[in-house]
Every structure is written in C-alpha cells, then in structure tokens.
C-alpha cells in the first residue's frame, strides 16, 4: 500500500514540528549537504528583501503610467525582468485588473502557488484549507469575510493557479489619491488587495508623503 503511514520515513523524526526541523537540519549539516549561512540568506531574502512592497511599487507605477499599465496587462514579463521583479515562482506572471464591473481573486486550490517575486511568501490564510476549498465555490461569501461586499453588478473572476502562471491583481486606484506620486501611492497598496481579498478604501487626500 503506497500511502501507508508507516512507509513514510518522516515518521522516524520527532513528532514536535520544531524538533523535527532541527533533527533534519542537524543531519543535513553533518552530511555537509546544507550550509546554515545559506539558509539564513534564504530566510533574510523573503523576510526583508522580497515581499508585497515589490507588488505595491508595481501597482503604484501602473496607476501613474497608462502605457506601463497596458504593457503589464498585455505581457508583463519584459517589464518585470527590467524592474528586477523576476525569480522563483514568478517566471510566468499575469496581471489581472479590477474595474467597476470586474473583481479578481487569486487562489491555488491544489497547493499554495503564489507570485513570490512580487508578494513574497503567502500568508497563512491563503494556504488554509478553508480558503483553498471555498474561494472557488463561494468567492463572494469569502470576500465578505474580508469586509469586501461586492454589488451583484460586479462580476467575480477567480483564478485558480493550477499551472506555473502566477497571478497578481491590479487593484483600483482609490479616490482621494489624485496627484499622489509613486512613493505615496505604494504605501497604501496592501498585499490582500493584490490577492483580491481587499478593496483599497478612499483616501482623504490630505496625507503627506511619509505619513500614510
């Protein structure tokens, strides 16, 4: 029986998850198959260098440059390569635009596919069984749990990331941001808005750069 529990080598590891990781790491270090500094470099990359700030900058740029926005919607890869927003789990990006008529939502029902170079590592809820099960079946109900209540006139498009195409939602630019520059705009673009579980609220228009 190929899926019998006792056939799985991992059952030889400690049951406490943090000890299990430590045990495996320790063995691999002794066999010189990993390098602890390299692990720390990977962690530092996704903790501090690659995250939703990349996607937020891209969205702010798209909001302020119509031709860039069109290029991103048509074929984003050349632009992303140029901006350095390319890499693992972002090799084949598609940007989908929210409008008054259309709301996009991204999920991976089979695992946890997510556009790493633009959003970093996915949040826990994105990887949860509940989100993976429900986003495709009852997206409006899921959205309402995030405080997004869509009018019936707005159509929903749920993108299930079943291949290596990765999706980023281009949120609508909120009212009250007229005349803002890219650094101001990128501060109000949230990770959830780029997954599709948030609609960016109107701004009061009096915010100064750095105080958002």
């Amino acid at each position: 029986m190929p899926h019998d529990h006792h056939d799985h080598p991992h059952t030889d590891l400690p049951s406490e998850p943090s000890l299990r990781v430590k045990a495996l790491e320790s063995l691999l270090l002794q066999k010189q198959l990993i390098n602890r500094d390299a692990l720390d470099e990977i962690i530092d990359t996704y903790q501090n260098k690659i995250g939703p700030q990349n996607g937020a900058k891209l969205v702010a740029m798209a909001w302020t440059d119509q031709s860039l926005k069109q290029a991103l919607l048509d074929d984003p890869m050349p632009v992303l390569q140029q901006l350095g927003f390319y890499g693992r789990q972002g090799e084949h990006m598609k940007i989908v635009e929210n409008t008054d008529d259309l709301h996009n939502l991204v999920v991976c029902t089979l695992c946890s596919c997510y556009p790493w170079p633009l959003l970093g590592i996915p949040p826990s809820w994105y990887k949860s069984d509940a989100y993976r099960a429900r986003a495709v079946r009852e997206p409006r109900k899921v959205l309402s749990e995030f405080g997004v209540d869509l009018p019936q006139a707005t159509k929903v498009r749920v993108w299930d990331s079943t291949a290596e195409i990765r999706y980023l939602v281009l949120p609508q630019r909120p009212a009250g941001t007229e005349g803002w520059d890219i650094p101001q705009l990128q501060k109000i673009v949230t990770r959830n808005a780029m997954i599709g579980t948030e609609i960016l609220p109107p701004q009061n228009g009096t915010l100064e750069s750095g105080e958002a």
């Binding site: 029902t109 993976r132 099960a133 995030f146």
Partner: peptide
C-alpha cells in the same frame, strides 16, 4: 480540496 464544503471561516 477546491470546492469542498466547509463552513470554516477564512480568517485574515
């Protein structure tokens, strides 16, 4: 699990 029926809320 896409489409599995569950009432578990998706908590941010």
């Amino acid at each position: 699990m896409g489409g599995d029926q569950t009432d578990t809320p998706v908590r941010s």
